[in-house]
Protein backbone atom coordinates (compact mmCIF):
# COMPACT_ATOMS: atom_id res chain seq x y z
CA UNK A 1 0.00 0.00 0.00
CA UNK A 2 1.42 3.42 -0.86
CA UNK A 3 1.45 5.71 2.14
CA UNK A 4 -1.13 8.48 1.80
CA UNK A 5 1.35 10.96 3.21
CA UNK A 6 5.10 10.68 3.11
CA UNK A 7 7.54 13.18 4.54
CA UNK A 8 11.12 12.90 3.46
CA UNK A 9 14.01 14.60 5.28
CA UNK A 10 11.73 17.47 6.21
CA UNK A 11 13.39 20.51 7.70
CA UNK A 12 11.92 23.92 8.42
CA UNK A 13 13.69 27.07 9.58
CA UNK A 14 11.69 30.11 10.63
CA UNK A 15 13.03 33.64 10.02
CA UNK A 16 16.12 32.32 8.28
CA UNK A 17 18.93 34.86 8.14
CA UNK A 18 17.75 37.00 11.06
CA UNK A 19 18.74 36.93 14.73
CA UNK A 20 15.41 35.13 15.31
CA UNK A 21 16.37 32.16 13.15
CA UNK A 22 14.85 28.97 14.53
CA UNK A 23 14.99 25.42 13.24
CA UNK A 24 11.52 24.21 14.17
CA UNK A 25 11.68 20.70 12.70
CA UNK A 26 14.64 18.77 11.41
CA UNK A 27 15.11 15.47 9.60
CA UNK A 28 11.52 14.29 9.78
CA UNK A 29 10.97 11.05 7.86
CA UNK A 30 7.51 9.61 8.08
CA UNK A 31 5.01 7.45 6.21
CA UNK A 32 1.35 7.60 7.09
CA UNK A 33 -0.82 4.71 5.99
CA UNK A 34 -4.39 5.37 4.91
CA UNK A 35 -7.15 4.67 7.39
CA UNK A 36 -5.09 5.09 10.52
CA UNK A 37 -5.71 7.37 13.43
CA UNK A 38 -2.32 8.80 14.22
CA UNK A 39 -1.74 10.62 17.48
CA UNK A 40 0.96 13.29 17.48
CA UNK A 41 2.24 14.25 20.90
CA UNK A 42 5.02 16.41 22.23
CA UNK A 43 5.22 19.40 24.47
CA UNK A 44 4.75 23.03 23.43
CA UNK A 45 7.33 24.18 20.93
CA UNK A 46 8.35 20.69 19.87
CA UNK A 47 7.36 21.40 16.27
CA UNK A 48 4.01 19.62 15.97
CA UNK A 49 2.12 22.55 14.46
CA UNK A 50 4.98 23.35 12.13
CA UNK A 51 5.06 19.76 10.95
CA UNK A 52 1.36 19.41 10.21
CA UNK A 53 1.27 22.68 8.28
CA UNK A 54 3.69 21.08 5.83
CA UNK A 55 1.31 18.25 5.10
CA UNK A 56 -1.23 20.42 3.29
CA UNK A 57 1.33 22.73 1.74
CA UNK A 58 0.73 25.78 3.93
CA UNK A 59 4.38 25.83 4.88
CA UNK A 60 7.03 25.07 2.36
CA UNK A 61 9.85 22.97 3.73
CA UNK A 62 13.23 24.66 3.90
CA UNK A 63 14.51 21.34 2.65
CA UNK A 64 12.91 17.94 2.11
CA UNK A 65 9.75 16.81 0.35
CA UNK A 66 6.16 16.02 1.24
CA UNK A 67 4.25 13.51 -0.88
CA UNK A 68 0.51 13.09 -0.93
CA UNK A 69 -0.65 9.86 -2.61
CA UNK A 70 2.85 9.43 -3.95
CA UNK A 71 3.19 12.86 -5.54
CA UNK A 72 5.17 15.88 -4.44
CA UNK A 73 2.65 18.44 -3.19
CA UNK A 74 4.80 21.34 -4.35
CA UNK A 75 5.19 20.11 -7.92
CA UNK A 76 2.94 22.96 -9.14
CA UNK A 77 0.92 25.82 -7.69
CA UNK A 78 -2.36 24.11 -8.61
CA UNK A 79 -1.26 20.88 -6.98
CA UNK A 80 -0.44 22.72 -3.75
CA UNK A 81 -3.87 24.34 -3.73
CA UNK A 82 -5.65 21.11 -4.53
CA UNK A 83 -3.92 19.25 -1.75
CA UNK A 84 -5.54 21.64 0.75
CA UNK A 85 -8.89 20.07 -0.13
CA UNK A 86 -7.56 16.54 0.25
CA UNK A 87 -5.69 17.20 3.47
CA UNK A 88 -8.03 19.14 5.73
CA UNK A 89 -6.32 21.00 8.53
CA UNK A 90 -8.12 22.29 11.60
CA UNK A 91 -5.91 24.79 13.37
CA UNK A 92 -5.53 25.21 17.07
CA UNK A 93 -8.30 27.48 18.43
CA UNK A 94 -10.03 27.41 15.04
CA UNK A 95 -12.97 29.41 16.37
CA UNK A 96 -11.05 32.63 15.67
CA UNK A 97 -11.25 32.06 11.92
CA UNK A 98 -15.06 32.25 11.68
CA UNK A 99 -16.14 35.23 9.62
CA UNK A 100 -19.45 34.66 7.85
CA UNK A 101 -22.82 36.04 8.91
CA UNK A 102 -24.31 32.62 9.47
CA UNK A 103 -23.06 29.26 10.61
CA UNK A 104 -24.25 27.71 7.35
CA UNK A 105 -22.28 30.12 5.19
CA UNK A 106 -19.17 29.65 7.25
CA UNK A 107 -19.23 25.88 6.92
CA UNK A 108 -19.91 26.33 3.19
CA UNK A 109 -16.77 28.44 2.67
CA UNK A 110 -14.48 25.47 1.98
CA UNK A 111 -16.82 23.56 -0.35
CA UNK A 112 -17.58 26.79 -2.24
CA UNK A 113 -13.87 27.33 -2.80
CA UNK A 114 -13.83 23.87 -4.33
CA UNK A 115 -16.26 25.21 -6.95
CA UNK A 116 -18.89 22.58 -6.19
CA UNK A 117 -22.50 22.93 -7.29
CA UNK A 118 -24.97 24.58 -4.93
CA UNK A 119 -26.64 21.26 -4.29
CA UNK A 120 -23.39 19.51 -3.51
CA UNK A 121 -22.36 22.32 -1.16
CA UNK A 122 -25.67 22.08 0.67
CA UNK A 123 -25.32 18.33 1.04
CA UNK A 124 -21.82 18.62 2.45
CA UNK A 125 -22.67 21.40 4.87
CA UNK A 126 -25.54 19.37 6.31
CA UNK A 127 -23.43 16.25 6.53
CA UNK A 128 -20.57 18.09 8.23
CA UNK A 129 -22.91 19.78 10.69
CA UNK A 130 -24.36 16.40 11.52
CA UNK A 131 -20.92 14.90 12.16
CA UNK A 132 -20.06 17.51 14.76
CA UNK A 133 -23.52 17.47 16.29
CA UNK A 134 -24.72 20.95 15.28
CA UNK A 135 -28.49 21.12 15.20
CA UNK A 136 -30.37 22.59 12.22
CA UNK A 137 -31.78 25.54 14.13
CA UNK A 138 -28.24 26.85 14.68
CA UNK A 139 -27.48 27.06 10.99
CA UNK A 140 -28.89 30.55 10.54
CA UNK A 141 -27.32 32.02 13.70
CA UNK A 142 -24.29 34.26 13.60
CA UNK A 143 -21.29 32.16 14.58
CA UNK A 144 -19.99 35.01 16.72
CA UNK A 145 -22.95 34.72 19.10
CA UNK A 146 -22.41 31.10 19.97
CA UNK A 147 -20.47 29.50 22.80
CA UNK A 148 -16.79 28.59 22.51
CA UNK A 149 -17.52 24.88 22.18
CA UNK A 150 -20.09 25.47 19.45
CA UNK A 151 -17.74 27.76 17.56
CA UNK A 152 -15.11 25.06 17.68
CA UNK A 153 -17.56 22.57 16.18
CA UNK A 154 -18.46 24.99 13.41
CA UNK A 155 -14.80 25.43 12.56
CA UNK A 156 -14.23 21.68 12.50
CA UNK A 157 -17.34 21.23 10.36
CA UNK A 158 -15.94 23.83 7.96
CA UNK A 159 -13.00 21.55 7.27
CA UNK A 160 -14.91 18.26 7.32
CA UNK A 161 -17.28 19.73 4.72
CA UNK A 162 -14.48 19.54 2.17
CA UNK A 163 -14.50 15.74 2.66
CA UNK A 164 -10.72 15.59 2.98
CA UNK A 165 -9.07 12.19 2.67
CA UNK A 166 -6.83 13.13 5.57
CA UNK A 167 -8.16 15.14 8.47
CA UNK A 168 -5.59 16.82 10.69
CA UNK A 169 -6.63 18.43 13.95
CA UNK A 170 -4.27 20.58 16.00
CA UNK A 171 -5.23 20.20 19.64
CA UNK A 172 -8.96 20.23 18.94
CA UNK A 173 -9.85 19.94 22.61
CA UNK A 174 -7.58 22.68 23.98
CA UNK A 175 -9.44 24.91 26.39
CA UNK A 176 -12.69 22.95 26.41
CA UNK A 177 -14.43 21.50 29.44
CA UNK A 178 -14.18 17.70 29.96
CA UNK A 179 -17.64 17.04 28.52
CA UNK A 180 -16.86 19.19 25.48
CA UNK A 181 -13.58 17.33 24.98
CA UNK A 182 -15.24 13.95 25.13
CA UNK A 183 -17.96 14.99 22.67
CA UNK A 184 -15.55 16.38 20.13
CA UNK A 185 -13.28 13.34 20.31
CA UNK A 186 -16.31 11.07 19.90
CA UNK A 187 -17.39 13.13 16.87
CA UNK A 188 -13.97 12.70 15.35
CA UNK A 189 -14.01 8.94 15.97
CA UNK A 190 -17.47 8.64 14.42
CA UNK A 191 -16.36 10.68 11.46
CA UNK A 192 -13.32 8.51 10.93
CA UNK A 193 -15.31 5.28 11.17
CA UNK A 194 -18.05 6.40 8.79
CA UNK A 195 -15.83 7.98 6.14
CA UNK A 196 -12.84 5.66 6.56
CA UNK A 197 -10.55 8.65 6.29
CA UNK A 198 -7.12 9.05 7.81
CA UNK A 199 -6.95 11.22 10.91
CA UNK A 200 -3.97 12.93 12.49
CA UNK A 201 -4.68 14.16 15.97
CA UNK A 202 -2.29 16.51 17.69
CA UNK A 203 -2.94 16.33 21.39
CA UNK A 204 -1.53 17.13 24.77
CA UNK A 205 -3.47 14.47 26.55
CA UNK A 206 -1.61 11.19 26.83
CA UNK A 207 -4.75 9.47 28.00
CA UNK A 208 -6.62 10.48 24.84
CA UNK A 209 -3.68 9.51 22.69
CA UNK A 210 -3.40 6.12 24.39
CA UNK A 211 -7.10 5.44 24.10
CA UNK A 212 -7.74 6.58 20.53
CA UNK A 213 -4.66 6.26 18.37
CA UNK A 214 -3.52 3.32 16.26
CA UNK A 215 -0.10 4.85 16.10
CA UNK A 216 1.70 7.46 18.14
CA UNK A 217 4.39 9.85 17.02
CA UNK A 218 6.25 11.69 19.74
CA UNK A 219 7.94 14.96 18.84
CA UNK A 220 10.78 16.29 20.89
CA UNK A 221 12.56 19.54 20.03
CA UNK A 222 11.94 19.26 16.31
CA UNK A 223 12.73 15.55 15.99
CA UNK A 224 10.70 12.39 16.19
CA UNK A 225 11.60 10.82 19.51
CA UNK A 226 9.31 7.77 19.34
CA UNK A 227 7.08 6.33 16.68
CA UNK A 228 5.01 3.20 17.06
CA UNK A 229 1.82 1.68 18.44
CA UNK A 230 0.71 2.97 21.85
CA UNK A 231 2.03 -0.15 23.65
CA UNK A 232 5.41 0.29 21.97
CA UNK A 233 5.64 3.98 22.76
CA UNK A 234 4.41 3.71 26.32
CA UNK A 235 6.83 0.93 27.07
CA UNK A 236 9.34 3.80 27.17
CA UNK A 237 7.67 5.30 30.24
CA UNK A 238 10.91 6.45 31.82
CA UNK A 239 12.31 8.06 28.66
CA UNK A 240 9.02 9.83 28.05
CA UNK A 241 9.06 11.23 31.55
CA UNK A 242 12.68 12.23 31.04
CA UNK A 243 11.92 14.40 28.03
CA UNK A 244 9.28 16.13 30.08
CA UNK A 245 6.22 14.36 28.75
CA UNK A 246 3.40 12.86 30.63
CA UNK A 247 2.43 9.24 30.28
CA UNK A 248 -1.09 7.92 30.75
CA UNK A 249 -2.08 7.67 34.38
CA UNK A 250 -2.38 3.89 34.14
CA UNK A 251 1.20 3.67 32.88
CA UNK A 252 2.42 5.86 35.72
CA UNK A 253 0.65 3.74 38.35
CA UNK A 254 2.02 0.56 36.76
CA UNK A 255 5.52 2.03 36.87
CA UNK A 256 5.10 2.97 40.52
CA UNK A 257 3.90 -0.55 41.34
CA UNK A 258 6.85 -2.07 39.50
CA UNK A 259 9.19 0.09 41.55
CA UNK A 260 7.62 -1.35 44.68
CA UNK A 261 8.32 -4.84 43.42
CA UNK A 262 4.95 -5.83 41.98
CA UNK A 263 5.55 -7.96 38.87
CA UNK A 264 3.54 -6.39 36.06
CA UNK A 265 3.91 -6.96 32.31
CA UNK A 266 5.37 -4.22 30.08
CA UNK A 267 3.24 -1.68 28.22
CA UNK A 268 0.24 -1.05 30.40
CA UNK A 269 -1.34 2.22 29.45
CA UNK A 270 -5.11 2.02 29.85
CA UNK A 271 -7.18 1.62 32.97
CA UNK A 272 -8.57 -1.72 31.77
CA UNK A 273 -5.15 -3.21 31.14
CA UNK A 274 -3.98 -2.04 34.53
CA UNK A 275 -6.94 -3.62 36.31
CA UNK A 276 -6.41 -6.96 34.59
CA UNK A 277 -2.67 -6.92 35.22
CA UNK A 278 -3.11 -6.02 38.88
CA UNK A 279 -5.72 -8.77 39.31
CA UNK A 280 -3.36 -11.28 37.67
CA UNK A 281 -0.49 -10.18 39.89
CA UNK A 282 -2.77 -10.41 42.92
CA UNK A 283 -3.84 -13.96 42.06
CA UNK A 284 -0.26 -14.95 41.38
CA UNK A 285 0.81 -13.59 44.76
CA UNK A 286 -2.15 -15.25 46.51
CA UNK A 287 -1.21 -18.63 45.07
CA UNK A 288 2.18 -18.64 46.76
Amino acid sequence: MTPIIRAEALQHTYSAGTPFEKVAIDQINLDIEPGQLVGIIGHTGSGKSTFIQHLNGLLKPTSGTVYFDGEDIHRSKEATRDVRFSVGLVFQYPEYQLFEETVYKDIAFGPKNMKLSEKEVDERVKEAAHFVGLSDDLMECSPLELSGGQKRRIAIAGVIAMRPKVLILDEPTAGLDPAGCRDILQNILDYKRETESTVLLVTHSMDDAARLADRLIVFHSGHIAFDGTPPEVFSHTLELLEIGLDVPQAARIAEALRERGVKLPESIYTADQLRDAVLDAWKGAGAC
Binding site: Q53, L58, V90, Y96, Q97, F109, G110, G158, V159, M162
Partner: peptide, 27 residues
Protein backbone atom coordinates in the same frame (compact mmCIF):
# COMPACT_ATOMS: atom_id res chain seq x y z
CA UNK B 1 -2.49 32.54 11.44
CA UNK B 2 -5.92 33.50 10.14
CA UNK B 3 -4.60 33.64 6.60
CA UNK B 4 -3.24 30.11 6.97
CA UNK B 5 -6.49 28.89 8.44
CA UNK B 6 -8.50 30.32 5.55
CA UNK B 7 -6.01 29.04 3.01
CA UNK B 8 -6.48 25.61 4.54
CA UNK B 9 -10.12 25.97 3.47
CA UNK B 10 -9.09 26.90 -0.03
CA UNK B 11 -9.15 30.70 0.28
CA UNK B 12 -7.09 32.32 -2.44
CA UNK B 13 -5.43 35.62 -1.60
CA UNK B 14 -3.05 35.70 -4.51
CA UNK B 15 -4.94 35.53 -7.78
CA UNK B 16 -7.82 37.37 -9.42
CA UNK B 17 -8.42 41.01 -10.29
CA UNK B 18 -8.47 43.79 -7.76
CA UNK B 19 -12.16 43.33 -6.86
CA UNK B 20 -11.84 39.60 -6.43
CA UNK B 21 -8.81 40.16 -4.26
CA UNK B 22 -10.55 42.76 -2.13
CA UNK B 23 -13.44 40.37 -1.64
CA UNK B 24 -11.06 37.55 -0.81
CA UNK B 25 -9.74 39.66 2.06
CA UNK B 26 -13.06 39.54 3.89
CA UNK B 27 -12.40 36.15 5.51
Amino acid sequence: KIMSAQKARGADFETGNIFQRAKALLP
